[in-house]
Design a protein around this nucleic acid. Structure first.
Lengths: 194, 194
DNA sequence: CCCGAAATATGAGATATCTCATATTATTGT
DNA sequence: ACAATAATATGAGATATCTCATATTTCGGG
């Protein structure tokens, strides 16, 4: 097993390249991207500390590998598959652990789905900004964001302007500086309770 | 292992009652409900043929069991846990199978989440109607539906009236008769491609 | 260095959806 | 059988969000 560190924007896995390792994230955060037939690239999900990466490739013989990019400094354990694949798939302790991880993930996504629909962009964007920020700098491409959040470009800009007017963010060139993280957290937290 | 059949509206698992079996759905469909502290009951997800039920209870020592109700005739394999729990958790073939199932489920939910937000109620409601209908009869409670779809009661009614005006549905008492399933499928399919 | 494509911006009008107010039925407990 | 509560309905005005049109700026390739 190896330990490796990735910098912000570094690719942990390149899309389409079946990975040679099973990864376990110790620290950091990353984004999952996929490219569609028409060439459009979409952000589809996040990865955080204590998540596995590459488990789909471990489990499924045929699986289209998605791209994974660090969105802040990220540290992983990396287990070489060519050597340990067979062992892992026969290790009941590991399988139980992975099954638990996946069951929790599936449940969380289901919750997110059935709730997330309800809230206005203001709340979902606050959550998104906090999830993707590197320290106090937010610099995602608007195009990617409105695709991920399922909202029009126009409206995204509109809400970002509001955040700046309220002082939550400050625009600096083409990045945004997070000035009042507490206010963003307050908005994002609305998504989490019921 | 036993085989059992449930009728529409019959409870497969009662909320809060840890199940005695691991279930595998051979045929049919069901709904997952949870009751919150304030007493509100929410529909949170669906179960279809080839899904497992009760795997969360098998895997996690502490887990709050949600209610599961058949929404059409449903047939399950049922494996008694008191006898087979230990065996299942040490059976690598079974664990691999379950892990695959959960990984697919998690991925599907993530997709649904990142896409589902985008579409107007018209599309999501069409999908919902087809998923919950028993034959050609749709009879979910409006209150439950607008909670699940994250939409206001007022707006749900508005769109249902439109569906009736367009002839997709026909209101009969407090149920709806599906008259043009093809049109509903056309609307629902929009959710599925990219 | 220039070009074209992609990304960023901004305005204005159209829809989708929400909130609130208010009636009219079902359902349920007593 | 009655009252209380939940579910169904409907209207009207307020917001959130979309679509389209159009400029400006950034960026990679030749």
């Amino acid at each position: 097993m190896e330990v490796r560190e990735y910098k912000r924007d570094e690719w942990i896995i390149r899309e389409g390249m079946r990975p040679d390792y099973l990864y376990y994230v110790i620290e950091g955060k990353a984004k999952i991207y996929v490219t569609y037939q028409n060439g459009k690239v979409s952000l589809i999900n996040f990865i955080n500390a204590h998540d596995y990466i590459g488990e789909m490739e471990l489990l499924h013989e045929v699986y289209y590998t998605k791209g994974i990019q660090a969105s802040a400094k990220t540290v992983c354990f990396e287990i070489p598959l060519h050597h340990y694949r067979k062992k892992l798939l026969e290790d009941t302790t590991f399988l139980r652990e992975l099954t638990k991880f996946l069951s929790v993930k599936a449940t969380k996504m289901a919750e997110k789905y059935s709730q997330g629909l309800s809230f206005p962009l203001e709340n979902r964007l606050a959550d998104f900004i906090l999830q993707t920020a590197d320290g106090d700098v937010y610099k995602e491409k608007h195009v990617t964001v409105c695709d991920f959040l399922g909202v029009s470009y126009r409206h995204l800009l509109h809400v970002l302007v509001q955040f700046c007017e309220k002082g939550y963010l400050q625009k600096e060139g083409r990045h945004y500086h997070i000035r009042q993280p507490d206010d963003l957290h307050r908005l994002a937290d609305v998504l989490k309770n019921e």
